[in-house]
Design a protein around this nucleic acid. Sequence first.
RNA 1: GCCGGAGUGGCGGAAUCGGCAGACGCGCCGGACUCAAAAUCCGGUGCCCGCAAGGGCGUGUGGGUUCGAGUCCCACCUCCGGCACCA
Length: 949
Amino acid sequence: MAKTPPTRASDPAAATTSDTHPHRYTARMANEIEARWQAHWIEHATFTAPGPGDAGFDAARPKLYCLDMFPYPSGVGLHVGHPLGYIATDIYCRYKRMRGFNVLHPIGFDAFGLPAEQFAVEHGVHPRETTQRNIDTMVRQLKALGLSYDWSRELATTEPEYYRWTQWIFLQLYDSWFDAGRNMARPISELIETLRARGTWDDLGDAERADLLDEHRLAYMAEVPVNWCPALGTVLANEEVTNEGRSDRGNHPVYKRPLRQWMLRITAYADRLADDLEFVDWPEPVKTMQRNWIGRSEGAMVDFPVDGLDETIQVFTTRPDTLFGATYMVLAPEHPLVERLTTEQQRASIDHYRQQARSRSDVERMTEAGGGEKTGVATGSCAVNPATGERIPIWIADYVLMGYGTGAIMAVPAHDLRDWVFARRFDLPMRTVVEPPAGYEPSKEEHELSYSDGGQTVLPYPGEGISVNSANDEISLDGLAGREATRTITGWLEAGGRGRFKIQYKLRDWLFSRQRYWGEPFPILHGPDGRTVAVLERDLPVTLPDMEDFAPASSDDPEAPPRPPLARAPDAWKYVERDGVRYERELNTMPQWAGSCWYYLRFTDVRNAERCAGVLPERYWMGERGVDLYVGGVEHAVLHLLYARFWHKVLYDLGHVSTIEPFGRLFNQGYIQAYAYRDARGVVVESGEVVDEHGAAAADVQDRPGAQFFHDGKPVRREYGKMGKSLKNSVSPDEICGEYGCDTLRLYEMYMGPLEASKPWSTRDIIGPFRFLARAWRLAVNEQTGELSLRDDASDDVERQLHRTIARVGADIERLAFNTAIAALIEFVNAATASGGLTRDQLERFVLVLSPLAPHIAEELWSKLGHDSSLAYHPWPAYDESLITEARIELPVQIGGKVRGRITVPADADAAQIEQAALADDTVRAALAGRTVRKVVVVPGKIVNIVAT
RNA sequence: GCCGGAGUGGCGGAAUCGGCAGACGCGCCGGACUCAAAAUCCGGUGCCCGCAAGGGCGUGUGGGUUCGAGUCCCACCUCCGGCACCA
């Protein structure tokens, strides 16, 4: 955490109550007011939201379910970037309560996860303890911001009462299959009936039956390649693997190896996850990212027989129309056929290449695939192009990934840029089979890839066009356009059993096991026969066993079997006897996503011991469109939101929830960024300790051009990025609350800019919102006596501006534009101050309009105005439209697009009247002297533009 | 590499539907108050030319559409986010 920057003497907030103005709004007063009202709200349970069946529930009111994305309780507490979204939703919820909504606004903690476990391994403290401590810190910090959560609904994913239902949902997945005909999940018991009806059940033995069912489950086990680090005894994320193929932590070797893991069949829902995006009100970029992630593409699966072996290589291609141009094939180095395809001559180089590829990260492989050098090795074998009958060489190269499609491609170098680069490098043949349309202009990239052959420039052409050179004895594509050619060749492949039409997704099934301790145990038992059975529902939850040592077992042997921490759990936990058979529990745990996949459901009925959420509360709060407003960072655009939608759809199919989508409206808040500084060695230094060449704190002079920065007397380089621990540029909300009060912090964070934009933190600017609150206070309260200072007669101008302010602030809060709402309030206070103050009635309305944004000072003024209960549920003030609209308005008159005059006309004047007034205006006539008016464009209420020559 | 986003004064930003670019705040400059300073209050502040009146330029760069472009279209540059085991 950053050190408190030195307080400047000029800080009015830092001044304690002055002798001359004993009742001035200072940080000390703000802190006193804030502590008092925060205690009041808790004591009176002001923001506890009753649901259906609870006392005080009013079913007649509309509901609003407003949710912040689940926070992880980090060890260092909050920095000022975290609460940005929380403050926004708090303002919105406070406003909606005043508008008469039943508001569900809960908070909880996504408390399983890696950091607590790693801390535990390093420091020997049980993750349960650190997690609890971190939650306590965060709750304290959140409460200190005056956030109006319903604290009675607080939960953590680590509570057995919660993860009992996470396990229960996993069992729903385990006990279901996807009925492709009905496009929905159904209980596995119904699969038996379906199979029996099809005649593929009764003849089978028990083992075969069990296998058949397991193959269909939405939760199933499979071998998948992972980044295995034997020294750490665990699987690593791509980001934890360095470019050199070693572990980020400890620099140990990492190997790609297949591991038997739990998988969830999210691919079955690919179409629904893509199609149902149509029904949600989400930012369009997020929908696009999800669609791209799902990556639906149509094409063909084509079988290439291997020459001289009884094998075929399956490839997926989106461009079957270019099949005649496939002049070689490329397999991923991990492809299972590589072993058989490698000739003795090539054995050594293939083995060497595969060894190398094994220790390269996927990200690096993808990055090099485009710009950098392509690498690859020939297997020595050939396949047969089914269209041309030609023998084509088979290579392996790491630009082909095992995870996409079939892990093999047909290479069409003339019409695919990556294949082109590869073919040029290794001198492989090319054949042009598609002609670009007339007038086609090659892109810059295509030009760069071109080469000269006997004076002729040869270019790749990756687009669609007219097929050429594409005929054999049975079929010809020549002369056909792309789509027609695709249809024709696909039909020919199908007829000859050489391939078929195929919809392919980029989306892969969800790898759901982790070799970790601090996660939900699977409710699964492994029998001596190697089969799995589910833990009985009445035996849930399967609680995490208490352990002293939860470090994974490390080894030097890359082939050593993984031993997750739970392998060392007491036997009493590990082994379960049922019907005389001894079962071993599943020793992996679930990923952190699991708990965050359904927490929004639990919040609707958080203490229910019978169900994951009661029917009535779920129906009421999830209503027609699920969560009405879901606010969080765009970093969750794909994974969390896709996983949660998937679980929700399964629960919907099985009848446990009432909406097809969980989150009706999504909003992404931006990041708070800040300057960070690195010393000569490249080490990040504490931003709060950096000064400029005059010794002034860096935060005070950060935008001065040419400033130089020093840490500990040595020059440092400045950079800019997301606030956080890694850049040591965090600013704690505790610090800012202490120095200015949390109402000021709330206003500042909202005033910085649009909620959705990322923006730089500037401690220097906080004084602005503080001054605004001090002026608002001064407008209402006599700084000498502490009494209200009110006037008796209302100024018409102030009254009109108050109506405008009420209208603007309300509309701005509705569209989450808090920065402009605050600007409107500032303008009002400045105008009211200049005009000499407010009447009691005006002050009351102003306080109400201020209250969602700065609730503590508003409650304090409200009570000074003589109210003895909170204003949290007081109706939002009304405004009179007729007082807002002006009778006469000023319009700019442009000549040739430049403003040359202004006219004042009645607000409802029509185009003809406005044109007449414009042409009659003296300045306009002077500017037009000697010119001919060609055209007059009038936009009533906006502008006049005269075109003259 | 692939996918997504953003570039407006010294700084954060405003301009909601193609219609007066720079609301509001920070900073800075000047004034009032004060023995003095802070706080507070009042005024000024896009850049260039000009004593002024006034004029010219101006929303990352280059083109285009339009009576009119920060906003729409094309190309480019720079920065930021995600990429499946960080959450």
